[in-house]
Amino acid sequence: MPIRTPHFPDLLFGPAERLRRWEAALMALLAEHGYRELHPSLVLREPVPEGALRFFDGDDLVALRWDFTVALAGLLARSFPEPPPRVAYAGAVFRRPIQPWEATERFEVGCERIQPEGEPSGEADLELARLLMAIPGTLGLKNAILHLGNAALVRRPLEAEALPADLALAVVAALSRRAPHRVAQALEGHPAAARLTAHAEALLSELDGPRSLQALARSPYASLLQDDVVRMERALEGLLPILPTNLELRVDLADVAGLDFYTGPTLRLWAPGAQQELASGGRYDRLFPGLGKPWQAAGFCVRLSRLLDLAGTRPDLFEEPR
């Protein structure tokens, strides 16, 4: 269904009640699993990116909170000598939309799992995936689809080939469009063109369950990616036995959204017929080292605004509230 959201949505009685109820249910779920809430200020003084809603506070350029992960990272790096292992958040972020039908003010609930650098991270990734699997039931979504990806499947080959930044961007844009012919076109004449095109075809050949991983055997970078594939196999072994009946698990090898940020496993939650993902996250181990902290982190964010839109346009996808 098409989505038509005002940029600064006013919520009337029904959606306002639903937002409050969903936010409370999700925060209770996260609290049950040991995630404690942090509430970064609505006004951020970090270097303000394009797309943020900016204004001057005296002589200082500041912005409304545009991203919880960035806001929390600043707060955590400033305030904690050791990383709190589990953090949750809820509230609004403000970003100028890329597509005209997106809202500028967006409501989100999310969580982060933070560890000292070097600790094994596989169990933390599984913990987040299990939590995300519980989200559809918590929100009353009748059916949902969880996509598992891994940013390393694209990152490592691009780094191994030492592609110039503009070519790497063109390859990522082509993969984002799921267009291997565009990869070939972007790399025409480059020595790695045939290898990276074959890799793109392997990444895009399947969008299905666990057997998708077998497609990587056809990639010229199969041995380079062996460890990542083993980690994905282990994740699937851990998740498939506990998969709720209303949740489908798919492996999406070509998930490149946020590739400049994510460094490892990625998670995306969809509902059948939804036009946008309803939650997303993954591992982003380069964020805290960039702020001078030897920590690694992963997390996910539930896009409540999109869920509110979906409940308005496709109420048949949701259970009646008890």
């Binding site: 689809i145 969008l207 798919r250 059948p272 036009q275």
Partner: peptide, 18 residues
């Protein structure tokens, strides 16, 4: 000519779209 697909439809209903 290119065959294009809505990202949401393709990723959320591949069984119907593919």
């Amino acid at each position: 000519a290119r065959l294009v697909a809505a990202r949401g439809a393709y990723l959320s209903e591949p069984g119907r779209i593919r």
